[in-house]
Design a protein around this nucleic acid. Structure first.
Lengths: 348, 348
DNA sequence: CGATTCACCTGAAAGGTTTCAATGACGCAA
DNA sequence: TTGCGTCATTGAAACCTTTCAGGTGAATCG
């Protein structure tokens, strides 16, 4: 059994030159029909598989995009990755993923890996802004697109407009008559814009108080901890509404609040989440949340990174996409928590 | 700005040969300390980045594993992918992902891609058993490990023991006094073992009836549809328990059942899910479910694929891991649906 | 009939690395 | 002095493909 069959073996077996075999694969119109079919059948017979490494090496980098995501286990990022995969495929590119798991060293590792692999470009949800490594990457001509809350100059970015999202959330809570809002989420630099959006709205309303409850990360577990803190606050000082920096936190909060029926959602505490992950609407109390247009985010990211790769006159672009409020039971007025509210805000 | 700096430029600048530069990177002990540091500093200065394509080409394939997952948007697979990434990293390998989205053509595309990229091995949750393409891959010597419900001969596989899981679920429903169980899930070949497990148990109990409600896929939306079907059944014929083939289906069922308070969970219908995704315990009624040991699955998969790659005496192995029942409110006896039950079965 | 075109095919270079046999330099024992 | 072992380094081959300048023979044109 011939272990490795390359273009050369195929050429020999078909009685043509290697150049011709290559042409059969890449420029079939340059080859006569007779040889084309002959070569093709020899390939099949020998089980030839083109070596993409050599191909890319020769062609100076390939058709692969690298994507680094904060955490695949977070459904928002899973969806985003999935959307990028689809968008990339449509543009004829394959997207490979890495999850930084919020660890700077893993982020670095994937950046290095992608650069060594000579990917066409990198799409990254950075841990905390741009790092030296990213700047070096850019200097060496690698297209880099950020999913970030800040618009960093020198990079294309999709700034997920958390400010507007924060405003929507806070305004909604004020509209339903709440006056003491807790913003739950951290580290602050990662969610700063949502915080600022909420802050801006609250400042414009007399008698509305906003406090910040920090969390080390944005998982369900962190939400639970925050919920316990909330419960520990004496009733008179306790916020009557929570704006959680993402849905996972909100779900954790729900768990903590409901486990010991002391506090009711939304009667005692209304909750707004962020991202509209699939489970938001199926939570123990369906969650009011701020939806981000994931598909469009992905599409823009892919478009920008490819433009930067192809277009010599590329100019960096900062794109902000407007999020949208989805109201469900966790903030619904009177028949709150009623399963009847479940359907609200369903995806199409 | 020198566009491309390769090993050759570094060699020239440092006044050594290319071989030496290579040694500095790969066999530092063969190089004197003086040259080693000199070469290293030149690399830094020139911004040299090793071209992994050439490296892998030369070395005949690299240190990358390919993984194909049914659907990243399903948190079970997201977790599994994540666990494989971690396990792979521990073994010094990078894992790149693709999501087949249940489409055979995408599965094929990724298989081709991985083979062309000369990955070290492939870990795959196949759409429906092994395909011709996978057999061809194997024939050409590519290690392939399946996450599957069947143990296919000729392949290593991690058979997620759905039979036992099905038994656990059905037995539990019978134990709490239910006598008409609906198995919700499909396509059947994908969930056959869970079905068979349940069937076996039901057959051993007099007076227990088991029906199958098919679904085209296993998403929340499919669960909703199944829930509507369930509601449409006249009360006297309606099952008093559901075993859903996964948690997403179960969550969809919950939504459908609760939206029009006609039926209560678990009083009228008890529900058991499968997978114990993070949201199962935060569902509108926390979900009894069958937990799969994701981390161990991943660890075994990586170990097997690498063994097949490295060890000439490798023998195929079929590993089955025992799942575990996690009881929550959706089947809890009297104070069912009580938020107090929320904590049950929490992950550590 | 010679020249021009055309379609098809060839052979070799190039791309950046690793690896390996070979070389050079050096010290040391005989 | 020669011979020998060590250590550091070298240069070229090999990995597999794509690309490109050119070559061949047949058909077409004047």
């Amino acid at each position: 059994m011939a272990r490795r069959v390359g273009i050369r073996e195929v050429a020999d077996a078909a009685g043509v030159s290697v150049g011709t075999v290559s042409h059969v694969m890449n420029k079939p119109h340059l080859v006569s029909e007779a040889t084309r079919t002959r070569v093709r059948s020899v390939m099949l017979e020998l089980g030839f598989v083109r070596n993409d490494l050599a191909r890319q090496l020769k062609m100076g980098g390939g058709t692969t995009l690298g994507m680094i995501v904060l955490n695949v286990a977070n459904p928002f990022f899973a969806d985003l990755a999935h959307a990028c995969e689809t968008a990339g495929e449509q543009a004829g590119h394959t997207v490979v993923f890495g999850s930084s798991d919020q660890l700077p060293e893993r982020e670095d590792r994937y950046l290095d890996l992608f650069e060594e692999q000579r990917v066409r470009g990198v799409i990254i949800a950075p841990l905390l802004g741009t790092t030296d490594r990213m700047h070096r990457l850019r200097e060496r001509g690698m297209p880099v697109v950020l999913f970030d809350i800040h618009a960093e100059s020198g990079f294309c970015s999709i700034t997920m407009d958390g400010r507007v999202g924060g405003e929507l959330a806070a305004q909604h809570l004020i509209d339903i008559g709440r006056s003491h809002i807790a913003f739950v989420g951290g580290p602050l630099h990662q969610v700063e814009d949502r915080w600022l959006g909420a802050q801006g709205v609250c400042a414009r309303h007399r008698g509305v108080q906003l406090t910040h409850i920090d969390t080390p990360d944005q998982t369900i577990a962190d939400g639970r901890v925050a919920g316990e803190m909330l419960k520990a606050i004496p009733a008179e000082d306790r916020p009557d509404a929570v704006f959680a920096a993402n849905d996972l936190l909100a779900i954790g909060l729900l768990q903590a609040l409901m486990v010991s029926r002391e506090l009711r959602v939304p009667e005692d505490i209304a909750i707004v989440g962020y991202d509209d992950i699939d489970y938001a609407q199926s939570a123990i109390v369906p969650l009011t949340t701020v939806r981000q247009p994931v598909d469009q985010l992905a599409e823009h990211a892919v478009r920008l990174v490819l433009d930067e790769a192809d277009n010599p006159e590329h100019v960096h672009e900062h794109r902000g996409l407007r999020p949208e409020l989805v109201v469900r039971a966790s903030t619904a007025g009177n028949d709150a928590a009623a399963p009847a509210a479940l359907g609200t805000g369903n995806h199409p």
